[in-house]
Amino acid sequence: MSGDHILTVDRLMMRFGGIVAVNELSFAAERRKITALIGPNGAGKTTVFNCITGFYRPSGGAIRLAHDDGRTIQLERLNDFRISKQAKVARTFQNIRLFPGMTALENLMVAQHNALMRASGLTVLGLLGLPSWREAERRAIDLARAWLDRVGLLDRADDAAGNLPYGDQRRLEIARAMCTEPALLCLDEPAAGLNARESGGLNELLLSIRNEQGTSILLIEHDMSVVMEISDHVVVMDYGVKIAEGTPQAVRDDPKVIAAYLGADEEEAIAVMESGT
């Protein structure tokens, strides 16, 4: 597997006290492709995510992000909000983290914070209500409206995010992440808790984000039907190390993967083997 990598994780280490959660993990995600990170519970997937998105500072290793314009950013040196602001990496959370007391539309407006801050002249121009600010705000609302339409929530735009059904909240969180106009979108178990129909809709949404926006996607997922159906590349982790990677087909037939899932949880292993067939 060669090609144009947007994200390269190189010998990533993460220790918590004496526990090694991620051990010398290396993998790469291709540009404009969907890469899935799978593995049994406790394999360290979310830890990898938190390292990539700046919530944890890795104990060792490097995470490189190569932008379309040729800029390369060392993610392990950035932290906190800068990952999203400067490196253009957006993420969603395993247990949805919307702003429940704000409307769906407001959630998407908050996501455009940095662009709007510039447009409002760090609040000064906005406070005076200059036309240039009004124009920028109108465009931001249009972008938010477009994304609400994409995820099928246009008619719930003025409802509080906390009042939306679970599946809608998942999609709204993805829309919110997309409103930051990311180069890489990291999704932490986007299909968790969705029913079959909703998860089918999610697949279409993710494929369309890849195809139309050209956004690269990295996702953690337990739902194997999602992984098998939409991933271009799959990385399998167990106990903090990579045990396999390749196309969905190749990974599914890999005995090490089956063993890892069998060892961890029989049902999941069966799900791996049966899905996609």
Partner: peptide
């Protein structure tokens, strides 16, 4: 809006580059 978002969920704010 960022103030209110901060009140709602600080972690999410950071993930959005605030």
């Amino acid at each position: 809006r960022a103030w209110e978002a901060l009140r709602e969920d600080e972690v999410a704010c950071r993930a959005l580059g605030i």
